[in-house]
Design a protein around this nucleic acid. Structure first.
Length: 310
DNA sequence: CTTAGAATAT
DNA sequence: TATATTCTAA
């Protein structure tokens, strides 16, 4: 039986959190230096049409015994496309920028914006799930970083993030195919902790069958999931944030034990009218569950989504 | 020119 | 190791 398509898509963002729930993106959370860092736009190549309008949501989470307090801030983007100023997403890794010897020579410049590095993205099982779903839906043929990224619609996700992950994922698939059939001995650990992440998500059958299976079947429309009891986690980008907040998913506040609306991340709908990019609806449904910030030992990796899926 | 993919770096 | 960044090819 194939019940793979049963719960692939889910509803989009029903509604974004009401402004009331959101707090104005204030610099209260960060220092002025950071504010500057935040405001500066990312040096996205020099493309004119690369205006990314992203909806930014910062969250502040306070670890409490049972309740995390998080403030989400949604930045509203101008309806008009003529406002490039709405850009801000970037996380300085440390306060170690904006100095170096950038000086005078010439222009002054100045935009510490350069040198800013995005925090490492942590691929949570949920994120990976989205990734796999996207790839599955796109089909191997269309499963290219850009498309995947768009389908995933995870805010903050970059093509490179996806590309990198895809690379590894392909390797994983390959490895899997290789060991099918028999050769047990060989080489390699199959269930090594290495692939745990990948193991979290089921690999679509056609993935293992290169050379076959390619139907350009897009499923661009959202399909309502058949009511899933289990709480699905949203796929937001978990990033290593030393102390700043990044855009992450937001889940409704639990008033009365009633969930609000799952939020979704939006990617900019750039002009991908080219080819048949199915950027209509993103994959998956999610309800965020984030309960605790997972602090990895050693590294200060703030990971959302505790792993309790499998 | 833009992007995918592999190689390489952190 | 996982992810990022760089490099090259299409």
């Amino acid at each position: 039986m194939r019940e793979e398509d049963s719960n692939w898509f889910s509803r989009w963002e029903e509604k974004l959190p009401s402004p009331e729930e959101l707090m104005p993106l204030s610099q209260t959370l960060i220092t002025s230096d950071l504010a500057i860092a935040f405001n500066i736009k990312t040096n996205n190549h020099n493309n004119n049409n690369n205006i990314i309008q992203k909806q930014q949501q910062s969250l502040h989470l306070q670890q409490q015994q049972h309740n995390i307090e998080l403030h989400q801030q949604q930045q509203q983007l101008p309806t008009t496309t003529s406002n490039p100023t709405t850009q801000n997403l970037q996380q300085p890794s440390s306060g170690d920028f904006a100095d170096s010897g950038e000086m005078g020579s010439g222009n002054g410049g100045d935009e510490p914006a350069r040198t800013l590095k995005r925090p490492r993205l942590v691929w949570t099982p949920q994120l990976h799930k989205r990734f796999v779903d996207a790839v599955a839906h796109l089909g191997i043929k269309n499963a290219v970083p850009k498309t995947i990224m768009q389908l995933m619609s995870v805010d903050g996700l970059t093509r490179e993030n996806v590309a990198s992950h895809l690379q590894k994922y392909r390797l994983y698939l390959k490895r899997m195919q290789g060991l099918s059939g028999g050769g047990s001995g060989g080489g390699g650990g199959v269930d090594a902790a290495t692939d745990h992440l990948f193991a979290s998500s089921p690999v679509p059958p056609h993935f293992l069958q290169p050379g076959r299976s390619n139907s350009e079947h897009f499923m661009p429309f959202v399909q309502m999931p058949a009511l899933q009891h289990h709480h699905q986690m949203a796929a937001a980008a978990a990033v290593q944030q030393p102390q700043y907040h990044r855009q992450v998913g937001h889940f409704g506040s639990q008033s009365n034990g009633h969930f609000e609306h799952p939020f979704m991340t939006r990617q900019s709908q750039q002009q991908l009218h080219r080819m048949g990019a199915p950027m209509h609806s993103p994959v998956g449904g999610f309800v965020e569950d984030m309960e605790s910030a997972n602090v990895s030992r050693g590294r200060k990796v703030l990971t959302l989504f505790p792993n309790g899926d499998d």
